[in-house]
Design a protein around this nucleic acid. Structure first.
Lengths: 203, 203
DNA sequence: GAAATAAGTTCAGTATATTAAACTTTTCCC
DNA sequence: GGGAAAAGTTTAATATACTGAACTTATTTC
């Protein structure tokens, strides 16, 4: 019972390159998040209880935060540490096949109408739909590719979303995102038709 | 545009309780993983290039590893850092945002209200917004990161989208996508408010 | 344009993360 | 049981994470 072969053991490596890719990614991610929300270093410092100077150094890859600090930063952004550190770039492992037939796993029938809003073959594996469900209608999907996540927001009506064992009821304005690499379903449980927007994200 | 209210700011807290829940969780997780695989501290130390003593201290919550160290440990176990720090049970397979929930408002003024529908922890760099523009209102954005594309579909009202030199007019049901890595703007040119959904895709 | 305010960086000091080596405890044979 | 080897903990020294305050740079405001 031994772990996979150890790699370079010398400590000289660490001396030469004190930060592994993680840190740099983390720095970029942090910078981006803060920019998106338009927060100053000071604002984030207050929200996270991490000093302004530390944040500055981390963003510029001049310091390597501890888990505790990373955790506080994540919380300031309203997300878990896992969500914060999960590398969005390292997803290259699997290329999704997905031919031009974007609608192959959906059926468009009396109960369910799907309009594709996203142009096909975007650089990213993202698709964007508008879905209409007649009263009592349902959209049931088999498991998509591993790692797929589906995001939806209700524009009209009342629906129930089921993913694996989980189930949630949603009304106009509510949003939800869930794993789509398991069998899942969207059911119109209200009166009249239901309309929703739906984003599929593969990885 | 301020982050959610700061919590306890005093540093005395940190002195009294040097490790937040993260570390303890991490310690338990680490101990469990190592036990599951039947690895000794020494074996893990070799595989991860983290010292035996450090591992011991971390497992007993007597030290608070840096991200770099946590990363190396994760790799030794053949998993991503996100997978390692995300408590196995809490891997939310389903996240709901209620209509009234303003937690994800990141920007709001008289003319323009933006609701972030996707907490941006998705593996891909994708974000999803609902934008409301009052009559005459406009949303002007500086250039986003290189390679960013924005996709929008009009839910209500009449708008004009400007990206670099291009300009297009849209009505309910119309969709458009355009480069967002240049200065761009969305202007409400109709009567009454305009509502649209917006997807940002980075690469 | 100058003064004022905010945002970001650098600095020096302190706390602590990290390591190698010494030490203690457990496990395993005989 | 007793000795040996492995597993785990503690120690002392060093590197660096982290902070508050001083400083520099951009942004506003008049």
């Amino acid at each position: 019972m031994t772990p996979p072969s150890p790699k370079v053991k010398g400590k000289s490596v660490q001396a030469a390159m004190p930060f592994d890719p993680t840190s740099n990614q983390f720095s970029r991610r942090l910078k981006q998040l803060r920019a998106e929300r338009g927060w100053s270093l000071d604002a984030l410092a207050n929200a996270s209880d991490v000093s302004r100077s530390m944040l500055s150094q981390v963003e510029r890859s001049q310091a390597n935060p501890t888990l505790a600090v990373a955790f506080r930063i994540a919380r300031a952004f309203g997300m878990s540490l896992g969500e914060l550190v999960e590398t969005p770039g390292a997803t290259s492992s699997l290329v999704v096949i997905r031919a031009g037939d974007h609608a192959y796993h959906y059926r468009s029938d009396q109960d369910c109408q799907i309009r594709t809003l996203s142009p096909l073959h975007l650089e990213k594996d993202v698709e964007f739909y508008e879905v209409q469900l007649k009263e009592g209608g349902a959209l049931r999907s088999a498991a998509h590719f591993e790692g797929t996540r589906e995001f939806l927001t209700v524009q009209k009506g009342k629906i129930r979303v089921e993913s694996a064992a989980d189930s949630e009821q949603l009304e106009r304005g509510d949003s939800i995102n869930y794993r789509a690499d398991v069998p899942h379903a969207i059911v119109n449980v209200g009166k009249g038709e239901a309309i929703m927007f739906l984003v599929d994200i593969y990885r």
